[in-house]
Design a protein around this nucleic acid. Sequence first.
DNA 1: CCCAAAATGACCTCTCGG
DNA 2: CCGAGAGGTCATTTTGGG
Length: 589
Amino acid sequence: MGDVSGVGSDNFDWNTDDELEIEGFHSSCLSVPNGETIAGSVGASSSAGPSNTKVFDHFISMGFPGEMVSKVIQEYGEENEDKLLEELLTYSALESSPQQQQQVEPDPCSSENAGSSWDDLSSDDSFSDEEMPKSVSRNGDPLHTLVKMGYKEEEAVMAVERLGPNASLEDLVDFIGVAQMAKAEDALLPPEEKPQYNGHAKLKKRSLYDYEVLGKKKPKIFEKRTLCEEDDETQALHLPNPMTGFGVPTDPNSIITHRRIPEDAIGPPYFYYENVALAPKGVWQTISRFLYDVEPEYVDSKYFCAAARKRGYIHNLPIENRYPLLPLPPRTIHDAFPLLKKWWPSWDPRTKLNCLQTVTGSAKLTERIRKAVESCEEFEDPPESVKKYVLDQCRKWNLVWVGKNKVAPLEPDEVETLLGFPRNHTRGGGISRTDRFKSLGNSFQVDTVAYHLSVLKEMYPNGINLLSLFSGIGGAEVALHRLGVPLKNVVSVEKSEVNRNIVRSWWEQTNQRGNLVDLDDVQQLDAVRLEQLMSAFGGFDLIVGGSPCNNLAGSNRVSRNGLEGEHSSLFFDYFRILDLVKNMSPNYR
DNA sequence: CCCAAAATGACCTCTCGG
DNA sequence: CCGAGAGGTCATTTTGGG
């Protein structure tokens, strides 16, 4: 969820000049904020030993700092390139976030080498927000300051252009960190996969995991993950059918009450992440890897309401004793829209709607279909060809029969109801019809999400503090409210102003007693800001987010370039913020 | 009445999984 | 082989403020 229309408008493209950037990456450091480390990387190269040079150079050419690379090689050996990649990625992700968390917990997978932890590294070359000289960021030209800190000029320029000249140094550094992470993924493409502009060879990108799983043999040595983990990985390549996740209330046989969560993932704080289930290959594996290796729960909302909505959810919530919102919503088109039954032809067998999308069918299409059906009224049933045309269009645009020979797209009110929102939730405040469809199409299905979140009610009878990223029209907030979980403090981050207004107005309509803080941009949410919020509220109990899917969604044939795409890379902000909160949480309990 | 901004509609012809 | 898909781009029409 979350409107990202603003993101594209400011001329920043994560993928601009990819091939040039990758080349330019050779001698630079990935996320080294000061000059010393750049110099130091040369020494690290030689200390890594002559036998390592090939592997070492390989990673250096991807832009990882030399010191980090040699450290990882020491720890895991050089033959296990995939593992090294993973560790480097993970570490540079941590690195790009401020090191509040000196106590980066030793990865259980690498426990044997506990002696050489990351600590010395992080204290060397990480520039935590606390250490950041405030005076510099206030006085000096931020561009100059960033370059002085060791960032590449084009990175600094990009960050300043994107965030504006008045952005704080912290925000700029955060931004560059995320941009680097997105780029690091790109750099991981095997050389022959690198995009080339030879005529029609249009950017065919593959994600990190694609490369790991399909491009190379699985590492055998130093693979400390359990057999169970391997099973997860092969299973995760196939979406479950039926898509009922750990169970849906309408089918008691589907319910599973036990699962194993990796130790790193165990809450509190609890997190709940959502995105489209049918993302390009490997995307969910990458997301899962970042989110502490938690296995996704794939659920189709057609088991909750009358419209399909195939989504993957990664969360660390308990799955015992879930309960649904009551009353259970109607689960067929006829139950949801009883008045339409009289117009429904016998040859239209649909009982469920397809996914409710952000765009809707046109009036012209309604006309064409009406004429097509009318023209063969002399028959009892239209000919097969006409039926097929009409049904194809109806399925494609989610049309319903609203009159004699007349189909029409759903109205925003009807979409609201299907998704479990109160009537007129998105109405008013000057929002246009088009924008209502857009906001609703990007939203959660409330009943589905509420079923998953229902376990919180017993755990937090006095209410929760919620951090809601990419909130959109507040699906999570509505779900918790309908469950009767009191909302103490809610921090909601949403790009679109109309969506923020919708949530704000809902907040007032429902007489909430807590505080609602709304922020414009996830980039604003750095360690300092989080620290302020968490100390004011006493930490967060739940972090919810569904990051933009524009570059993952199947119907996007133009820029479906996976997680590293312009919009969808905001996933890394979800991870960045979640990881910060997780690491800061022990201070607030 | 003019003009900018917003809305609309036609076209795009993808990848994935069953 | 078929169908589903929180989409993008462009030209054109409509809306709304002065």
